[in-house]
Design a binder for these strands. Structure first.
Lengths: 355, 355
DNA sequence: TAAATATCAGCAAACGATTTCTAAGCACTT
DNA sequence: AAGTGCTTAGAAATCGTTTGCTGATATTTA
């Protein structure tokens, strides 16, 4: 097995010492001196690439930023990843991604692994609060940006989506369409139980970080502004899948409560809801309007196409890298809140007063 | 800034030498001896984590496998990634992912970057043949598995999808539905031109690696078996997006040739095709049947739901890691071909003989 | 009991880079 | 012409880990 070419090889080839080679490579000798030219020619010829591990050991930057995601199969998170990669590459940095495939145990393994790695900084999208993260010394020595969740790890800069506004503008839009009986589907990765007292969860500070709760806060705010009392029987718990949406729609119809609109926690759930309603001959948008979340690929493709909250997941990624690059330069940074918007399509329509 | 805790710290704390600590950690001293117990207790107490960079410098394994993907926003590739992560974690290895966001330039940068990193091995899903890869010494010193493409880098083990069979079974199924006039939509990341002489491309050996060409080979084989002559006017070039599908359907209808079935290069294109046809009042599946590719999330969600070729992208990922782990153990490995299957849904139906 | 062998922990040399230190070389001043 | 200051490049130390070597101790054998 042929060895990698090292600085020593370059030095011998250029008839200088290794220290000189190092200095040329790091730009401490201006490139137009004859000695630098000779060295650069040798690196070129031998196809020399510096060894990142050795550099890292001397406390140098490696140009590598780690990203930990909860689930690489989820388009929201791959959006973050794509944004991060784009921005990092624009700045000649590289991203390495570790995914925990939805499990907190795997997330801890990812943390353990990256803590032995050669990172300049870490962009961390945590599934949940996590003692492993807090006790790893390595992560106290490199800059960390928390993405996607807010207020989950204290004292770290964070980039998150304005989910309160998301819930708010979706609800507001429903109300503008004259739809007052609005189901709120509370999305959970792992539902704690079948029915939940959302009001209680919202007021308990410990639970402050669930994105679902933020959306619910927005929902409450919009109702309040219009003077509509909150009706707990309009809240249903769901997971984030198409099937889950189908099932919860069945459940809603089975209760035979009056429903004019449904807010889904993502587009997959929305499409499952729509599928069940259509099968039952309930027209979407005319009888019941549906709003999704994520504004993903499937929103424009479904029929009817789905009105959805756009979360700008790519922007979460790019902004996280921006913050990271600033931190690496030693600058102070501020939290960044990514704005949301409503993409209006065919799954929502004005409700004429019922006969 | 507090320093990371090193072996030296552990050694001092346990009153032994660093070499002893190293041996305990690497299991060269059995864990039940008193000295080992003392060392382990110290590592525990001090929260010691070995430094991967230092280990790597001594030629040790780091437990890290790199994966280079063309596009992290594409569900097919994130399927590969998810499979790879799952299998790697089962074996206490970790995956780091680098995505080139579809550009060959970025792919080269990813290669450059990972070639300075601390990998035990590389799983490489190349966009195209690539001189950078071949000239990096580092990749000659570590095991490499080529995924998703076949025969693009000689002499490396590979894991790829049986696209010939994919094209074949899709076409066969169309024929069984009595549909003989089958459009083949040739998917390209970056279409070389508007219309293409597929027969010429297939016979030119240089082009052997395009997945689209393999699917076309399967298409030809199925036609031939049924004695149906190949009609080049049934081939259309397309990209991989929903819009591209919509546009190509428009183009097909504009030519007013007789079409009974359409084979799309992925589900997005299929859904775009269906959208246009439905808008024109052309019934899918009755007038024209459509088969997609990928069997992705959107296939069951679309209406009508899309009959699609399932590529098992997760299996590409898991098998790639299996091969890699064998290579790391020094075993010989064989190429692995991932099987495909047809998921039948509502976008295809039997064609009654036309009046 | 003494000699031969096995076991084991510590010393020190790597691994490939960066960086401090050092000494040589040079131009200038007086 | 000797002393001063400055630049420059090489020698050597260093980062945290692994490992061959060594000498000391423990165990076995005659």
């Amino acid at each position: 097995m042929k060895k990698d070419v090292t600085m020593k090889d370059v030095a011998e080839h250029a008839n200088v010492s290794v220290s000189t080679v190092s200095r040329v490579i790091n730009g401490k000798i201006s490139a137009d001196t004859p000695i630098a030219k000779a060295v650069l020619k040798a690196t070129e010829k031998l196809n020399y690439r510096p060894n990142a591990a050795a550099r890292f050991m001397k406390g140098q930057r490696t140009g590598t930023i780690g990203v930990i995601l909860p689930d690489i199969a989820n388009p929201f998170f791959t959006g973050i990843a794509a944004g991060a990669i784009t921005r990092a590459q624009e700045n000649n940095n590289n991203i390495i991604i570790s995914s925990s495939n939805g499990s907190i145990e795997q997330e801890k393994k990812s943390l353990e692994h990256l803590s032995r790695s050669v990172l300049d900084g870490l962009i961390y999208c945590p599934i949940a609060r996590n003692e492993v993260f807090e006790e790893i010394e390595y992560f106290k020595n490199i800059p960390v940006v928390i993405s996607y969740r807010r207020d989950i790890i204290p004292s770290k800069p964070q980039v998150y989506v304005d989910n309160i506004k998301g819930g708010y503008i979706a609800t507001k839009y429903m109300l503008r369409l004259n739809r007052k009986r609005i189901c709120f589907l509370a999305g959970f990765w792992d539902p704690p139980c079948d029915s939940i007292d959302m009001l209680k969860m919202v007021s308990s500070p410990e639970a402050g970080f669930y994105t679902t709760l933020d959306r619910f806060r927005g929902y409450l705010k919009a109702l309040e502004e219009e003077g509509i009392p909150y009706d707990p029987s309009l809240v249903f718990v769901t997971r984030y899948s198409h099937e889950s949406g189908y099932d919860v729609a069945k459940e809603i119809i089975a209760t035979s409560i009056d429903v004019e609109g449904i807010l889904a926690p993502n587009d997959l759930v929305a499409s499952g809801v729509i599928k069940f309603l259509m099968e039952q001959g309930i027209s979407v948008p005319h009888n019941i309007s549906v709003i999704g979340y994520d504004d993903s690929l499937i929103a424009p493709i479904s029929s009817p196409s789905i009105t959805s909250i756009n979360q700008n997941s790519k922007e979460v990624g790019t902004k996280s890298v921006d913050l990271m690059l600033d931190l690496l330069k030693g600058k102070k940074v501020k939290d960044y809140v990514v704005d949301v918007s409503l993409s209006i399509r065919k799954s929502t329509s004005f409700l004429k007063s019922k006969n």
